[in-house]
Amino acid sequence: MSNESHPAMIGPGGRPLRAAVVARIYDHASDTRSLFLTLADNGAIHFIPGQFISIAIPLSDETRTRPYSIASHPEDGAPYEICFNRVPNGPGAAWLFERAIGDAIGFSGPFGTFSLERAPAAEAIFIAAATGIAPIRPMIRRAAAGAHLAMTLLHAAPSPEHMLYRAEFEALAVRDAGFRFETMITPEAETYSRLLEQCDRRWVRGDTNRARHFYICGAGHGVIALRDLFRSAGYERRAVHYEQW
């Protein structure tokens, strides 16, 4: 496959893009899908757990740039997994849902500073809302691969089928006594109010320990509300990491 075979291989601003090919498609739920991408040139994406690639979405009148976190692990190489859900009026996800096996996708990157190269030297709390689990999945695997202090993953999703990678995290919790996996099934509209209530009760009012590190990812302003909860409670600004989509 050549770059010329796909109209989006020249990105916005005339910048050349890398070409990926859809190797596999997996539907977690009717509205949530993973694409597994290989590179047309058989190269690799050298990324840090948590980073995203920037995909060129060719629309009728222009090419837009939209970010998608890499949900797979750097150590595994290709295929690289991105997962996403349908977003009302979201042309990026709509276009990705139309891709078939063998289709080419133009991208650049990786980018992003919401990333984790190794476990922090502190207790770590990972908080994911729905597909916000995508960047956190490789972060946890990287952190768990070496010596680490206590780690907790709190994943909120609207249904069990939206609890992506559940079996994987349950298995990790069984073999790694330092990792706790907790799930919260909640209607989408209540996701952040429930996360805020639980985080406030456990990690703000629950004790005076302010040495934890937080890694928060999800869509909407609730991510910012969680950030503010922890920072205003006395956690160091740089100990509260977040990515809001």
Binding site: F52, G112, Q244
Partner: peptide
């Protein structure tokens, strides 16, 4: 006029 915005202009990168 092109200005990079790898994250789609969502304040999630510095491009």
């Amino acid at each position: 006029i092109h200005l990079e915005h790898a994250c789609g202009g969502n304040c999630a990168c510095t491009t």
